[in-house]
Nucleic acid binder design. Sequence first.
DNA 1: CCACGTCAAGAGCACTGCTCTCGTTTTCTG
DNA 2: CAGAAAACGAGAGCAGTGCTCTTGACGTGG
Lengths: 236, 236
Amino acid sequence: MTASGTRARVRAELTREITEAARRPHAPGGGGALSLRAVARELGMASSAVYRYFPSRADLLTALIVEAYDALGAAAEQADAACGPADLRARWHAVCRSAREWALAHPHEYALVYGSPVPGYAAPQTTIGPASRVGEVLCRLVADGLAAGTVPVPQGGGDAVLAPGAAERVGLSADDPGSSLAARSILAWTSVFGMISFELFGHTHNVVADHERFFRNGADHLADLLGLPAGSGTLR
Amino acid sequence: MTASGTRARVRAELTREITEAARRPHAPGGGGALSLRAVARELGMASSAVYRYFPSRADLLTALIVEAYDALGAAAEQADAACGPADLRARWHAVCRSAREWALAHPHEYALVYGSPVPGYAAPQTTIGPASRVGEVLCRLVADGLAAGTVPVPQGGGDAVLAPGAAERVGLSADDPGSSLAARSILAWTSVFGMISFELFGHTHNVVADHERFFRNGADHLADLLGLPAGSGTLR
DNA sequence: CCACGTCAAGAGCACTGCTCTCGTTTTCTG
DNA sequence: CAGAAAACGAGAGCAGTGCTCTTGACGTGG
């Protein structure tokens, strides 16, 4: 095992180098303009050699997508963990802010993941796990408040709208029969990424001047919608 | 003038046919997979002939984008106009619903417009006008309520966040010194398209079961955020 | 030790956007 | 009305792409 481990290790190394190089050429030509031949040139190898590691361009894209989801999810989890667990609104703002900042720091990877699906690309099962990480962070945060009693259960409004098991997966089913708090959390989740996407894709370019403040105010309104308590307040 | 009008007419006709054919091949390969040669083949002409009408692929894309913006904007304006002007919440729901339905009916054109920017594409000035149509419908609706006094002015929260002139452009500056109602309207606008994009791009696939109801409930929460009065209520 | 599996390289196919040239057709002008 | 000028369609050609196949060279396990 460890004897052939050397081969497996250089293979893993080269695989990592390929995805790393593939992330760089993404800069000039945004999302779907990833060229296998370009990354092969950058690594000084023949284009056909890359196919030893990724059977097709779509598989390389998948690897990049999974990495992006994981990086964003890790950033969100880290931002959440850095807060005092009781201050829900601070946690909410921290997670939202970390997502936006990651997106601003990695616009092409964000576009790859939250933009339009790449032309001939169908998301494989591999991506759905990492994809939900930041959504789960957001929902678990609300679930913590629900469990602690600091977040009230809204009445009605979310009747049987979610997929079965979705609310349970993040601990948002107890004391919330119609899953209306879970539905509100999903709404807030989509709204957060709606703001980020609109900013990054330029739709609010001529409308919003101070995007950071706009985002913070918007996240605050969403926290109100969720009923998150005000907290210590320094982050507002 | 009208003598050369025949020439200009067949040119306009052919231009229209090209964009029309270009919208169709969009079905197999989503956003950026538009092939000039494919539309030329479909029209039975040489690929080079298309360049007489669109100097580059990007220009053809721009034409498609403008058409998509216009179609979506027209649908929204029409849905708004079909309501009694005083029932703000009905108008809000009608416009939101029309946007979602247009997106569901034209997913590839929606992705072209609200997805990630096409690789080597930079949105020219031509697109920014039509792009804001549905946002303006939404904001004007709120402005009507502000003018009629049926929508209250929220206190604080939207301090100097918008671009200068943005609130004035849709009549949301009067009696709203901090433009906080305007900022809320923009937030609601981004949230609506966040919901549509997440649904269309599959991010809520394993989370939301009844997308239509989820969207309606979400739009209702956003209407609450804006302070729109309840209205006659049949649309809820 | 040597056969086997892995690897890199190259040629080649079909496709793309785009440019250029070459006749033809239509329009404007003297 | 005739000729100049502009617009037009078709084709060849260039550089680039994803992907397949074949050909050798190399390291590894029986």
